[in-house]
Amino acid sequence: MSAPEVFREKSLMRAWSRYHRFQGKTLALVPTMGFLHEGHLLLVRTAKSLADVTVVSIYVNPGQFAPSEDLASYPSDLAGDLRKLSAAGADAVFCPADLYHSSPGDLPIEGEAASCLEDDGSGHETWIRVEMLEKGLCGRSRPVFFRGVATVVAKLFNIVEPDLAIFGKKDYQQWRVICRMVRDLDFAITVIGLDVVREADGLAMSSRNVRLSPECREKALSIYRSLSKAKISAEKGQKNSHELKYLVKQMISEAGGKIDYVEVVEQQGLQPVEEEISCPVVVCVAASFGDVRLIDNVEINI
């Protein structure tokens, strides 16, 4: 398997994509923040099965981290990621140094028009907000997160110009935010979400798992176990959302987890279901074990 082409400049990435599109090929994009695990590689393999050419982006997006969050400690291993992507068959990897600043040399514009585009030192000002979907769940405790996600994904879409984009549904709210942004802004892109990929013991795969101590990792299994129990309970007839949330909270709390939220929400609009469940829902969890914040979810279709 040949190694993927690696691009750091936006203009070169765009030119490569346009060349392949001119050849009549379809492109799939898998956006990531690196430190790749099997869940990411499943996204890549799925992309390869659906499109002629697969591009993987690796960019730890500072726009989605608040000052108090773990940007500085986010794990990275670019050399290891490139080896994994080569084995998975990715065709290109886009790993820019910074997506929030551009210079005139990055744009095919000359003369007076180019002078208007020079960086005046004021920094990035343009943000995309998906106003309703970003408010609940993770948006309550991470108020800048989804504007950063939506903005950087829109930038990636504009640079790579894919036909398809593949995301994991572990980040369920993120997936719905991107789907809504694509619909509302008329991106000609099909967004595909894949089910949560789990370790053999049920823990949802995440780049942050490496930071869990052995003790905290064992305790973190309470998230998946509680979600599984809630789903079984609902399928057996328990339709009261309060009862399902209580079940999940109790199991996680007893394991020593610090709960950010446990919510039962509609799958499309992510609106809370306050009483009886009468539509497809997703039970979403965010909880910390030690200093590691984990998210997970389970869909319940009734």
Rank of each mutant, 00 (worst) to 15 (best):
E161H: 11
Y261C: 13
P31Q: 04
K170Q: 08
M205T: 04
W175T: 11
R147F: 00
R217E: 10
G136L: 09
I277G: 10
P104V: 15
V153M: 03
S253E: 11
D70Y: 00
L36E: 01
E235A: 09
Q250G: 01
D163Y: 07
V282R: 12
G139W: 02
F94M: 03
K48Y: 00
F35N: 14
S141C: 08
L78N: 01
F145T: 00
S222F: 08
I159R: 05
S226M: 05
M33I: 13
P104F: 11
Y172D: 03
I178R: 01
C284R: 14
C138W: 01
H40W: 02
S278K: 12
E254N: 11
G136M: 05
P31F: 00
Q23N: 06
K258C: 07
G123I: 11
R142G: 05
S141A: 15
L85M: 05
V182A: 13
V93N: 01
F145S: 03
E9S: 14
R208E: 05
L27K: 05
V44N: 04
S17R: 04
N158F: 07
V160E: 08
K170T: 09
A230M: 11
Y224G: 07
I58A: 03
V60H: 02
K84Q: 14
L43F: 03
F146W: 07
Y261A: 12
Q238V: 15
G168I: 05
G63T: 14
Q268N: 10
L270M: 11
D186W: 10
C216S: 12
Y59E: 07
L43N: 01
V53K: 15
A204E: 05
K170F: 04
L185M: 15
R129V: 12
V191I: 10
K84W: 01
D98W: 05
Q174P: 04
V149E: 03
F35H: 14
H124G: 01
A51T: 07
L270E: 07
H20A: 04
V248S: 02
N301K: 10
I295M: 14
V6K: 03
Q173H: 06
K236A: 13
D106E: 15
R180H: 02
P108F: 11
C279D: 09
S102H: 09
D106Q: 15
K229D: 10
P104A: 08
F35W: 14
A154H: 07
E69A: 05
L247Q: 14
D119I: 10
P143V: 03
A230Y: 08
L107N: 10
M33Y: 09
P96Y: 07
F94N: 02
V197P: 00
W175A: 13
A51V: 06
